[in-house]
Design a protein around this nucleic acid. Sequence first.
DNA 1: ATGGTAGCGGTGCTA
Length: 259
Amino acid sequence: MKIATYNINGIKARLEALTDWLTMAAPDVACLQEIKSLDENFPRAHFEAMGYRVETHGQKGFNGVAILSKLPLEDVQRGLPGDPEDLQARWIEATVVGAKKVRVAGLYLPNGNPAPGPKYDYKLAWMGRMRAHVAQLLTQEIPLVFCGDYNVIPQPQDAAKPEAWTTDALFLPQTRAAFRRLNTLGLTEAFRARNQKPDQYSFWDFQADAWERNNGIRIDHHLLSPQAADLLLDCQIDKQVRGGERPSDHVPVWITLDA
DNA sequence: ATGGTAGCGGTGCTA
């Protein structure tokens, strides 16, 4: 089972690039972030014609997540539990029925800039809520995959220029500590478990020739429960997508599971 | 230190 995460930064603007990548990479499951559309405006029929089931959790203008799946989906849940007043569309979760069942969550963790400030407070609170929800799901002892745009640079080697990010919400000590607290629940970060190569990034800013200078950061991750980690075969970044026509600022990252 | 780009939606916000 191939499970990808891809922050597409607008479904309307990325329809062609996403279609080309789906055709090339043929993931069983693609978790999308920043669809920036209402559910009713998502081009569902286009992806259904490609053989994908489509589940969206959108909102007007910003954020928004979706799951595309060639395999049947069960028990779709929208929204991160823990705060009924939080209406931002950043979480979708479903059980993928392959040779084995895998519970997959697609997430768009808040950016948090500028820090300090209310947006950073929201980011840290959101990470706390995610930790509580993950802890709850872990009691089931089943394969779980939490993938998406975490807006977290876990370690200095995950940035081309770590010194440029020291006061940024993606790299502040509190952010990285909250990410570690998530991992120490017993999760495995798939890329680091399978790949120790340097200069591996998943995001290059649109500004200041970041792509041309390879000034990137690695912020799109798959975290796996122990039962999913036992099935992990591979994890790769489709870097070439960033050099294509009208690209997103993120590229797809995928895992394969023996499931 | 500053300002640089992209997307949505039709202005300024978000990143």
